[in-house]
Design a protein around this nucleic acid. Sequence first.
DNA 1: TAAACTGTTGAAAGTCATTTTCAATATTTA
DNA 2: TAAATATTGAAAATGACTTTCAACAGTTTA
Lengths: 159, 159
Amino acid sequence: MMTEPNQPLPRINSGSDLKTVLNKEGFRLTSQRQKILELFRDVALDHHLSAEEIHHQLVEQGEKISISTIYRALHVMVGLGLLQELELAEDRKYYELSTPFTSHHHHLVCVQCGAVQEFEEVSISDVGAGETQTRGFVLLNSQFTIYGVCPRCQNRLGS
Amino acid sequence: MMTEPNQPLPRINSGSDLKTVLNKEGFRLTSQRQKILELFRDVALDHHLSAEEIHHQLVEQGEKISISTIYRALHVMVGLGLLQELELAEDRKYYELSTPFTSHHHHLVCVQCGAVQEFEEVSISDVGAGETQTRGFVLLNSQFTIYGVCPRCQNRLGS
DNA sequence: TAAACTGTTGAAAGTCATTTTCAATATTTA
DNA sequence: TAAATATTGAAAATGACTTTCAACAGTTTA
């Protein structure tokens, strides 16, 4: 998304950068928000985490943080363009770091086993950018998600 | 989706067709299921309805149908390929008729007012078909959704 | 055609991710 | 540092969706 951004996406590389981005919108830097963003940096760039998983991992690391704080932080960060919200499963949302790299990657989901594969395809983002421009929309985000059955599950089901 | 379908999508044009499709999978034709599908045919082809909206409309028409039946019917019909499930809002799912026509249409959502615009773009479906083929997936469905702010909401917010 | 079989329905209770409430606490600003 | 206000944790609430179960309806079989 944002292949031709009006305002460049903030790149958060250190704690103080995050503070600047938050304060600009009247939000505050808290250790909880820092920890959440650090977690996304510690996992692979294209790794998706649900609120539940984020909470689990942080608690395992010994952090004291509640699940409601996770949800609130995710909202704020999606609003600031730091994170990207993904619809990968039926019943919950997933999040990943929003960076120029991930902006052209899309998802292929196996509806049987839930496995997710990524693929890069710039042309899709370009179509999205073109459509929004034509219609005068401000582009916030776009998602291309394919649902199917992976080879393994096809065999398993004797398809 | 299904630009090169293995099995052509069933086209449901009359009550008896629906019966055939349902029975083939061990399901039964009921007046409730018929009423739901008729509702989709009465609205514009590209119109999306949530479970709640379907229920509301049918009750308003004087039909006696419960919300749980709606949810159950939607599941069955998505499973049969008659309907398409869409992720247009944060908190609920929308459904539309699954036809060759709609298979190349995608959605542009205003996150402020919720307005949804449609656009046709075959190249997107082609990319999806190509990716799934390359990876050996069976393609079930794909969605390209763009989230942004529509011109009217931009003005309203003084952006 | 009627009985047997089995899928479906409505109503109400249950589930579960996410949100909200509220008092205590932390960050920011003056 | 104090005042102003955003944030947090815990628990309760919300709300979309699912499930349970007994009554009922479509299908099948004899």
